[in-house]
Design a protein around this nucleic acid. Sequence first.
DNA 1: CTGTTAGCGCTTTCAT
DNA 2: ATGAAAGCGCTAACAG
Lengths: 357, 357
Amino acid sequence: MPKQNQYEFWPKIVLPIPNMSPSNTTIRDVARLSGVSPMTVSRVINDSERVSPETRRRVEEAISELGYVPSRLARGLSRQRTGTLAVIVPDVANPFFTAVVRAAEEVARRADYQVILCDTRADLNVERDVIDELIAHRAEGVVIAPVSDRSAAQLRRLAEFGVPFVLIDRTIPEIDCDVVLGDSTGGARQLVEHLISLGHRRIGFIVESDDVSTARDRRRGYEAALSAAGIALDPALVAHAAPDPSGGSAGMRRLLELEDRPTAVFTVNNLVALGAIEAVRAAGLEVPDDVALVCFDDIEYASRLYPFLTAMEQPAQTFGTLGTQLLLERIEGRGPERRHEVVLPGEFIVRKSCGAK
Amino acid sequence: MPKQNQYEFWPKIVLPIPNMSPSNTTIRDVARLSGVSPMTVSRVINDSERVSPETRRRVEEAISELGYVPSRLARGLSRQRTGTLAVIVPDVANPFFTAVVRAAEEVARRADYQVILCDTRADLNVERDVIDELIAHRAEGVVIAPVSDRSAAQLRRLAEFGVPFVLIDRTIPEIDCDVVLGDSTGGARQLVEHLISLGHRRIGFIVESDDVSTARDRRRGYEAALSAAGIALDPALVAHAAPDPSGGSAGMRRLLELEDRPTAVFTVNNLVALGAIEAVRAAGLEVPDDVALVCFDDIEYASRLYPFLTAMEQPAQTFGTLGTQLLLERIEGRGPERRHEVVLPGEFIVRKSCGAK
DNA sequence: CTGTTAGCGCTTTCAT
DNA sequence: ATGAAAGCGCTAACAG
């Protein structure tokens, strides 16, 4: 079990480092070598039509001979556009966001945009810093799953700087922009109704703070399902916790300590479910026998190995694809005046954790 | 079940888009407003000492009044350094690399570097393109888990451009540079010896192509364990496959079709194991009863939900941390002449898939 | 402590 | 079809 600083003294091997000397070839070097002006070289590297085939050939030869690669910095500064856009998520390690990010990158790449991926770790301050960096970088647009409603300030900042953005997974009350959402309310309702149909009456809910739209919407769905079934809402059954495994554990522990503890629990997402399950087991109980459990979002690899979580699976890739497409439309001015609000239905997947036969 | 183009016609909501007009405030605007020269403003934003407190105050006031954010493009072009480094992995969605990436980003951020994350999808061409982009961006260094030995060309290209890089997880024969590795050979040997100690004699191996160093090294460990136990190597038991779940399935299917099929299988990594298990189940068999299984790398969330895979877990975060630290040393010229080669031991975790009691 | 002068490497605009 | 001049926004290197 390596300790953190075990590698303070690295094992060393005596081998030469390759000779690295920055080769700073510029457009002028290419121009000189091919006997034309920098402007002509510029035309060649930008596939402008107005270059004679012969000149083009000579320039291209010089380029490959010199191993010239145009500087994006200079080009960006001069053109006043960077061809870069950003994807910001609260946690890349969450399989849901991992999928979102991959899809977004794919679309961006195909449209010839570079993408900068930013992980805020659900930290508002990191998010602020990251957004400032992106402004400094003159990113042309941002696809973002914001930390919470309090991200509004930084988004307004983006808007001030004329950087278009689209929200994914989460809305923010005062922010009007394109947005790609899951059907949180409907999905939650469906999950909870399923538990009710299984005979549960005391159903817990582990959820993050109310300033995240998905948390609010899913709570709404939870309440709607209960009320439709004539079950009174018991505030003690709603446990607020961080939206990660340790939050899930903490939340579940609190629910289990209740006098009249729930027989079933709905967690706001996959990672919370994970922690909740661990807490159940730590208490010497079992899912679903002692506590049934349903949640939002799947954990793909886990489910492939062991189909356990009954979940409302959201089409993560589509969040990324669509979000990026909408963003590209805005960037390229093709977007309509009115904003898009896309709501993607989830897929209800019944597995073992809910205890359905 | 949403079809791909169901969203060709997005639902629209009539809401105004915030008025976005690019605010192009430059250092000169700030200079003008605060009544100093651009140079003084530059000094202020760079925390240079040589500015009187009063001037500094006025400048800072102007900055916040104008909402000025210095352009990284211009700064980079002028300073001839971008403060950007890149992390390249073959698959961010692989929990192992997800962890690597997060750790790397953390270290980079603390050293005030921006990081660009690139996912090559194990595609050599994507890798080449990505590296070209990074050169164009004038990234200052690269931490890379290369696709295969054939990545050598693009790494040499990096070196030509004076971009330092460190290899993680995988070495490349002709490339001498800092590298952070796991103990593939030793780890593989330990895994296979464990299977042997459980009584297995026919042990299969599902592995990717031999031009990836980890594949070679793990095969070496596999063979060493067999030979130490006096078990003859049967080439039919070594299945080559893509290093992902579908590759794992394909590989396992081939092994199961053998006349004298293996009673245990070692897979080169976590994702291959996943596919292999699916194939076993699809064949109506069970792990570990019909086929025992061990692999490299854990699938964290899956294991938390259901501790199943017997695996050689590698300290992924340390790969990222150390790799980035080494890179930073190189970038900042603090690195020693000789290269570092760090080999991190794995942790052998016995769970159910190997069938140990 | 502050300002001036030159670029950084590319592209835009306008000539030719 | 090609080139010259100017400038994108910033900072290094010198003044003063």
